[in-house]
């Protein structure tokens, strides 16, 4: 049996050797074909990083069982990784968002500003919608592309809360409220808003609105007077936004990639490092999108935040 054992050992070693050879062969053919690496695997050639800001901007964002959070925390973290990654020479931010909460939007704005200060070009590419907070984020970028039909603008701040006073009265429901100060239950849905409360909220809104104008002015390098007349919450198409100098150029996502490469002085065939990872992630994300796309009534009732948001 010893001879047979030797024979089988040789066969097994032969199989192992073939496996190694085939891996070497595949690696060589991948190098020869110049396969671009955009799947999250190690590559050291300088290129462009792409980040997507899709949907409402909130701090924690929506996260599912299979995917990471898409909130401002995650976006800032990704931007931070790109800022510290020596191979990322410029960043393209693809925006399709109606805006979101004030702090979340401002955190992304600050991060982009910081990247620009470190001479990392950041190009915004607007998709269907980049309104309010979506525009706030775009305004921090070095260069803004919009499509002709992109909905943008909506520079303004909003806060809202439902008023169920009549409904509660009809059904004999009353709220027991014990509070430490008279404004503690401001925006309560069980009563009318008082005049002084309205005044107080208006001052908060005005203050955050001024922050918006100041940051847009800073990001676009444009005096506030130049755009304050139409910064009244109105929306613009991409072409109108170009007229008002809210965007720099009409162009597609591909144009923004080209521009980012140009600004970073990279070759045309420089790699593009996509944020999205794998078909599996995309599949699971699409599954989660199906499940989480329905807002529950409870979620709608809890919606009373100060927001840079375009409300349709």
């Amino acid at each position: 049996m010893d001879k047979n054992r030797q024979l089988l050992t040789v066969i097994v070693l032969f199989l192992a050797l073939t496996a190694i050879l085939s891996i070497v062969r595949i690696s060589i053919s991948m190098n020869n074909s110049g396969a671009k690496n955009n799947l999250g695997f190690p590559d050291n050639s300088p290129g462009i990083g792409v980040i997507q800001i899709y949907g409402p901007i909130t701090t924690s964002g929506e996260s599912g069982a299979f995917s990471q959070s898409g909130g401002s925390d995650a976006i800032v973290e990704k931007l931070d990784q790109m800022q510290n990654d020596p191979k990322i020479k410029a960043v393209v931010i693809r925006i399709n968002s109606p805006g979101g909460t004030v702090a979340a939007t401002q955190e992304i704005f600050r991060k982009i500003t910081e990247m620009r200060q470190q001479n990392i070009p950041v190009v915004a590419s607007m998709s269907d919608l980049a309104a309010s907070g979506g525009y706030y984020v775009a305004s921090a970028c070095s260069y803004i592309f919009a499509n002709q039909g992109t909905i943008t603008g909506s520079i303004g701040v909003i806060i809202s809360s439902p008023n169920f006073k009549d409904l509660f009265e009809k059904y004999g429901i009353s709220m027991n409220v014990i509070k430490s100060g008279r404004y503690k239950d401001i925006l309560s849905s069980s009563r009318e808003l008082e005049d002084d409360e309205r005044e107080l909220l208006q001052s908060v809104i005005d203050n955050t609105y001024r922050q918006f104008l100041k940051d847009v002015s800073l990001g676009r390098n444009m005096p506030i007077d130049e755009f304050s007349d139409y910064a009244d919450g109105r929306i613009f198409s991409g072409s109108q936004a170009l007229e008002y100098r809210l965007v720099d150029e009409i162009g597609t996502y591909s144009d923004s990639i080209k521009k980012a490469k140009e600004l970073a002085r990279l070759e045309e065939n420089a790699p593009v490092y996509l944020e999205s990872t794998s078909p599996f992630d995309q599949f699971f994300k699409s599954l989660e999108g199906k499940i989480s796309s329905f807002d529950t009534p409870a979620a709608l009732l809890n919606h009373s935040l100060v927001e840079y948001r375009y409300v349709q």
Partner: peptide
């Protein structure tokens, strides 16, 4: 081995990494 032989035949490129992991 099935994945390796498929990749040897098809010159997969970056798709090879997905095949080899997932």
């Amino acid at each position: 081995f099935v994945i390796l032989s498929g990749s040897v035949l098809n010159n997969d490129g970056s798709l090879f990494f997905i095949k080899l992991s997932y």
